[in-house]
Simulated scan of single mutants.
Amino acid sequence: MSGEGLARRELLCAGALTLIAGAGGLIALRPAPPRISAAQLEAAVPGSVGPYRTVRGTGLVTPPADETTEAMYDAVIGRFYADAAGDGVMLAVAYGHRQDYSLMLHSPEWCYPAQGFAIGPTTPLAVARGGAAPIPALFVTATRGDRVEHILYWTRIGTRYPQTQGDTRGLIVQQSLGRTIPDGVLARASLIGGDAAAARATLAGFAAALVASLGGAGRAVLLGPGA
């Protein structure tokens, strides 16, 4: 493409983004969902998940603390679960009552490299949800030195489950144009070491058991309104 063509395309893209940004100021948006405290989030996530029970532990990777992160999340919890054999799964849940174009949930592809991890390819993984449609989730492996962490996660924006940052931005724009400020959650289960295929199966089973064990408040947070 010629330099003139590229310049024209960049101008058109910039104009479109300006219109979207301007629309947010012109449209009377419905209020965002109410905030959820850390105590409410703790109560919404069960302490027992299938054969797993909460235990004490350390080493959970969380987003770096800064003003943007604090503005983005109302509540973040971290749990460690273990089964009778002592095999453990780490769970992190981050909730934000207001998602807009400048404040979006930090996926593992962002927060792990920020703490020195190398990230492998991300692949889709469906989490079973009883008789309902499965939850579109993602699986990725992060490595730092001799630590290898296998990760399953999903992101919810409103009632949808975006698979990429582009999807997330698109959903936020769509819902803003529909006069709605969506809430959002990032649910992440992970385990250390082992074969990637085996870890993927273990995490998928854990996530399905987590979903099955949720009460009404937990479903509303992790799965969305009306789930």
Score class of each variant (00 low, 15 high):
44 A>G: 11
77 I>Y: 05
189 A>D: 10
178 G>T: 08
29 L>V: 05
68 T>F: 03
111 C>A: 06
186 L>Y: 08
98 R>M: 08
37 S>H: 01
67 E>R: 14
174 Q>P: 00
126 A>R: 10
214 L>H: 09
58 T>M: 05
87 D>V: 02
82 A>L: 06
156 R>W: 03
22 G>S: 12
171 L>M: 14
92 A>V: 13
131 G>F: 06
225 P>Q: 11
8 R>K: 12
111 C>H: 06
164 T>S: 15
57 G>M: 03
27 I>D: 05
128 A>Q: 08
69 T>E: 15
58 T>I: 04
19 L>I: 08
154 W>L: 04
7 A>M: 10
39 A>C: 02
71 A>C: 07
2 S>T: 15
82 A>H: 07
159 T>K: 13
85 A>K: 02
133 A>D: 14
190 S>I: 02
82 A>T: 07
117 F>R: 05
50 G>C: 08
110 W>E: 15
152 L>R: 02
100 D>N: 14
203 L>F: 05
132 A>V: 10
122 T>P: 02
35 R>P: 08
102 S>W: 14
190 S>N: 04
184 G>D: 04
110 W>N: 09
92 A>Y: 03
160 R>D: 15
158 G>W: 08
83 D>I: 07
178 G>S: 15
124 P>G: 09
219 R>T: 11
119 I>A: 14
88 G>A: 15
22 G>Q: 11
216 G>K: 01
83 D>P: 01
3 G>V: 12
95 Y>P: 07
28 A>S: 13
104 M>I: 10
145 G>V: 01
187 A>G: 05
60 L>R: 11
154 W>C: 06
23 A>H: 08
212 A>D: 12
146 D>K: 09
59 G>H: 04
58 T>P: 02
116 G>K: 06
62 T>N: 09
144 R>E: 07
169 R>V: 14
85 A>I: 00
21 A>H: 09
117 F>H: 12
92 A>W: 01
168 T>H: 07
94 A>D: 05
66 D>N: 15
84 A>T: 09
30 R>A: 13
216 G>S: 11
57 G>K: 07
133 A>Y: 03
203 L>C: 03
96 G>W: 00
203 L>S: 06
71 A>L: 12
24 G>P: 03
170 G>F: 07
146 D>Y: 00
12 L>E: 14
126 A>C: 02
31 P>D: 01
58 T>Q: 14
11 L>V: 08
175 Q>M: 15
71 A>M: 13
123 T>S: 15
101 Y>A: 14
134 P>V: 11
69 T>S: 14
117 F>K: 05
68 T>Y: 06
16 A>G: 14
91 L>D: 04
34 P>Y: 00
